[in-house]
Each structure stands twice: as C-alpha cells, then as structure tokens.
Simulated scan of single mutants.
Amino acid sequence: MSEHTIKAASRNAEGKGASRRLRHAAQLPAIVYGGSAAPQSIQIEHEAIWLASQHEWFYSSLLNLDIDGKVEQVLLRDMQRHPYKQLIMHLDFQRVDANQALRTKVQLHFLNQDSSPAGKTGGVVIMHELTEVEISCLPKDLPSALEVDLANLAVGGVVHLSDLTLPAGVELPALKLGKEHDVAVVVAKHGKEEAVDSAAPATAEVPATKASKKDAK
C-alpha cells in the first residue's frame, strides 16, 4: 500500500454552479475513473490538497484515495490550477490495478553533478534536456523518482535514456520505439564554443579590366 492517503467524499451535484459552490466552501471538485468501476465524482478539502501538491510524491506516487471510508489506490492524472490565484480548480485520479502495468511520468534526480569532471571544469555547462521520463511498471514497482548519477560525466559527455539505471521491473517505453527515441537526458559542453576561422585568405586575381595594356595590343 502507498504511504499517502487523501480523504474525499462522494458528491452528486454536477455542473459549473455546483463546482463553484464547492470552491466557495473550501472544497475541491474531482473525479476518479478507470478500472472496472464507473467514474465517480468526489470532493476534497482544498487546503489538504494544496499542502500535498507542494510535495513531489503527490504527482508520481500511488495514493490511497479514501472515499467515504472506502480506500482504493490511484494516480493523479490531471490538475487544473487557477490562472493567477493560488487555487487548485479540479483533479483527475485514475484507479490502479495491482496486476496491470501502468504508464506514468516520474521526476529525474541528478546526483554528483558538481563533483563530476564536467562539473569541476570551468566554462562547462551541464544541461538537463529532460527533467522527467515516462516509465512502465506494475504498481508495486513504481519508483517515486529515478536517480541519474553524473559522477563520471566528462566534458563533451552525453547521458542518453538507455544509460539510465532502472529499478527492477521498470521499463522505458520510448526505448522500444527505436534508436531514434534514445534521446539525450544530460549534455555537458563548453558554454562558449570556440569560433572556427573558416575565412581563408583570398587569392589575388587580376580583374579583366586590369589586364596589361601590352597584352591588349
């Protein structure tokens, strides 16, 4: 079972008006779907979700969704935020089947970057081309994040998807699509590439108009 529990209550009222009344009451409209059960509309205390949303686990870990005392495991699939206020407007949760592989995105945690050869070389920029990746695994094997150890990253080095160390039971679906999907995750290169002077000295040629008068006679 996951370590994080979200308490919710079922709701019957639908529509924008009902959702607006919920928000005025500091409640958040949400829906849970998937599995063999029908989609269910629920409501959750906004403050509890706001606090949970400040943590990485809320976005990538299995959650125990407690609806009126009945608990089921879910993943957060969508979050709608207010365009400028610190408010969450709506949540989508997906039910999880313990025996069925799921696909979701997890964050990448970069380790030992500053102590790597590239990190200790002046003028070198280490770029994180990806900060999250999509994985596939059974719910019991779901990691909260993937660690990328950059201890040996050299100047000019590149870490690809295929270089990532994966926990047991975890796969990267992108790698099954072909070599062209084995994209760069981290790149270390000089911040300012040395300009190559490709302008060779021009060969002096005598224009036709400058030809010798003697040759013209």
Rank of each mutant, 00 (worst) to 15 (best):
185 V>M: 07
215 D>P: 04
80 Q>S: 12
88 I>H: 00
163 D>A: 13
43 Q>S: 08
117 P>Q: 09
49 I>M: 06
188 A>D: 04
125 V>L: 15
8 A>V: 02
107 Q>Y: 03
144 S>N: 15
189 K>C: 11
201 P>D: 08
33 Y>W: 10
144 S>W: 03
110 F>Q: 00
82 H>S: 07
190 H>C: 05
86 Q>R: 07
47 E>W: 08
184 A>F: 04
35 G>S: 09
86 Q>G: 06
73 Q>A: 14
216 A>M: 13
115 S>A: 14
187 V>K: 04
163 D>V: 06
26 A>Y: 07
143 P>C: 09
173 P>G: 11
153 L>Y: 03
167 P>K: 11
1 M>P: 01
88 I>E: 01
104 T>E: 03
210 K>G: 05
134 E>L: 10
173 P>L: 11
199 A>E: 14
196 V>R: 13
188 A>L: 08
151 A>I: 11
9 A>S: 15
103 R>C: 06
185 V>P: 00
160 H>N: 14
192 K>D: 10
17 G>M: 01
185 V>L: 10
73 Q>Y: 03
165 T>L: 09
28 L>F: 01
94 Q>M: 14
115 S>Q: 14
85 K>Q: 15
213 K>F: 09
59 Y>G: 06
35 G>V: 05
62 L>C: 08
27 Q>Y: 04
34 G>D: 06
55 H>P: 05
73 Q>G: 10
25 A>W: 10
210 K>T: 07
150 L>Y: 03
161 L>R: 10
9 A>N: 14
78 D>L: 04
193 E>V: 05
107 Q>T: 13
34 G>I: 10
82 H>K: 02
76 L>F: 07
120 K>D: 04
26 A>N: 13
94 Q>P: 07
84 Y>E: 05
207 P>N: 14
29 P>Q: 01
169 G>H: 05
13 A>M: 08
196 V>S: 11
126 I>F: 04
212 S>Y: 08
90 H>A: 05
103 R>K: 11
199 A>K: 09
65 L>Q: 02
122 G>K: 11
197 D>S: 11
196 V>G: 06
39 P>D: 12
65 L>I: 08
204 A>H: 11
